[in-house]
Design a protein around this nucleic acid. Sequence first.
DNA 1: TAAAAATACTCCATAGGTATTTTAT
DNA 2: ATAAAATACCTATGGAGTATTTTTA
Lengths: 95, 95
Amino acid sequence: MSLPIEIRLQVTAIVLAEELSFTRAADRLKITQPALSKRIVELESRVGFAIFKRDHRTVELTNAGQVFIRGCKDSSALLEKAVRLASATIDDSVQ
Amino acid sequence: MSLPIEIRLQVTAIVLAEELSFTRAADRLKITQPALSKRIVELESRVGFAIFKRDHRTVELTNAGQVFIRGCKDSSALLEKAVRLASATIDDSVQ
DNA sequence: TAAAAATACTCCATAGGTATTTTAT
DNA sequence: ATAAAATACCTATGGAGTATTTTTA
């Protein structure tokens, strides 16, 4: 149950991986660019490796970043599925 | 990418599901019992169903709760695995 | 010099703590 | 009366915003 990688940060990384631009990703996330920047710094420090490679002109995923992003998506899909299944569960003991 | 169920809340529910006592679970999580109580209320309101059934004497998982907890564990295990795999990834583009 | 990310700072929302109440046995 | 969870209220931390700086193309 080790390191907690908040959903907020996972979603941030997923969107940035799609946009490959801090400015556009921040727009989509409805936060400011500095806030997004800080989220990514925080996330990378949590996981302990670089997820994005940026050089003031371009943003791209590192190899580790690609593996991580895929994991985030899979993990989140699994949870969504469980919540849907749970919602549909007939529950004699509800409330 | 719908509803964000924070890891903090997932971990809380997992521990409470193991302890079946707010007092003991709060201890293990190193938070106070009222804080734990509020986390569970928040989590249940997020997912939209009761995860625990409590009656001042006992705490137990609802059926939906069991499905949900399993999903949390599976989802978290998947993410952990991805992080480990990503960490081990040889990355020419690191830093 | 322009375009994009990073940094500095300030502020506020919310997560958590303390104290208390409620509830059932 | 006791034991455990819920509620009320208050506080403080950290996440987000504005302004600015840095970087390189």
